[in-house]
Simulated scan of single mutants.
Amino acid sequence: MTSALSLVERHPTLDAGSIVSSLVPPPQFTQARFDNYIPNPDYPSQEEARTILEEFAGRNTSVIKQAKLFGRSKKVEEFPPGVYLDGGFGVGKTHLLAAAWNVASGKKYFGTFLQYTSLVGALGYVKAVEALKGASLICIDEFELDDPGDTMMMTRMLGELVAGGTRIAATSNTPPAALGEGRFAAADFLREIQALASNFRTLRIDGTDYRQRTAEGISRVLTPAELAAQIGSAREVGDFVTEDNFDGLLAHLATVHPSVYVRLLEGIDVIALSDVHVIMNQTDALRLVAFIDRVYDAQIPLIASGTPLSEVFGGDMVHGGYRKKYLRCVSRLIALTNS
């Protein structure tokens, strides 16, 4: 697959086993620890969140072992069996989540909300729960409920896992009781949403987006000639660069399951996109968001011509129900194109 010179030439298949084995933190967070998370002193909630989550992660393994030792099926918990980090993008929530995963021992999983829902889609609900059962800790990054089916499915799955002794740590840009607002009739599923929220102790993390402390406020854009020159220079030093037309990439993403977007990126050092333009179709926009999340996880630089990538979400998208998702993506696009 790495020999393909464009992303559209790559056709990864959906493999349930690969999805399970990929439930680990992204490479950039392999060394994430609580002691190398640097709280911003202007926002005390960052230090507070680190302290509480470190305690939560440390208790995780000992509580499970104690339960098994005494043969108890239920445990008395001082707090709910989950911690939910609520805050804006770029305040270090994923770093803290990965730190908790790195501290925990035993069977553990780390993935985005999309990866877990994709696992259910690949294995079926019963087999997915069986695959995750017995874990001491499950970390869910970018928790979001975009439709009623996901709401009920995740409520049921988390309930079963928690009942079996698993603890849950999650991050999101939205408090758990407000998940789904602006995207579907959340009021119709209030009972399910409240049941989901009851599993978590919510920790609010305030702060500014660290990616934009040093990045410009817009994605860097190149002329076609500059793009060609940079592609040539990167290849001369041995970087593996893919070249794609923006429309071609959007069309190709529609043919690939989002859970395997990460496999589109194997072996790539730089992604080059030509003729970038504003997207008016929300389905295409959301696919691009999912793809950029994986590009950001892999820390692959983007070079592009046309419209700045940070300005591709057209119409009223950034003011609608997916506002936080788009703004997070814009933040990441600015970082990737200015790296």
Rank of each mutant, 00 (worst) to 15 (best):
K133P: 05
A186L: 11
E9F: 05
S305W: 09
E160S: 07
T61S: 13
R10M: 06
G111K: 05
I52S: 01
G159W: 06
F200Q: 01
V126D: 14
V260L: 06
L222P: 00
Y296Q: 01
L23C: 01
V162K: 03
S45D: 04
S62N: 13
P81H: 06
G82I: 05
A272Y: 12
A254Y: 08
G71I: 10
S22Y: 05
L227R: 05
E55T: 12
S305P: 03
D42K: 13
S118C: 07
G111V: 14
A285V: 08
M153N: 02
V129K: 07
V278E: 14
P176V: 04
G315M: 06
V270Q: 06
F246Q: 01
G134N: 05
V63G: 01
K127D: 15
T255N: 08
L309R: 04
I268L: 11
T214W: 12
Y261G: 00
R183C: 14
A298S: 13
Y116N: 00
A195Q: 14
L222V: 07
I168K: 03
P80T: 03
A195L: 10
L85M: 10
E130M: 13
A290H: 08
S219T: 04
V278N: 02
L286C: 02
A135I: 08
R183G: 13
T61P: 02
I231P: 03
M280P: 01
P27A: 14
T112F: 04
L302S: 03
L288A: 02
A67P: 02
N245P: 02
P148V: 15
A272E: 07
I138A: 04
A298C: 07
E142W: 02
A49R: 02
I205A: 04
K108I: 07
V241F: 10
G217V: 13
L288R: 00
Q115V: 04
S22Q: 10
R50D: 12
K127E: 14
V237M: 13
L302E: 04
S73W: 13
F113K: 01
A170P: 00
V278M: 13
E77C: 09
P39I: 14
L288G: 01
I205H: 01
A163Y: 07
G320W: 10
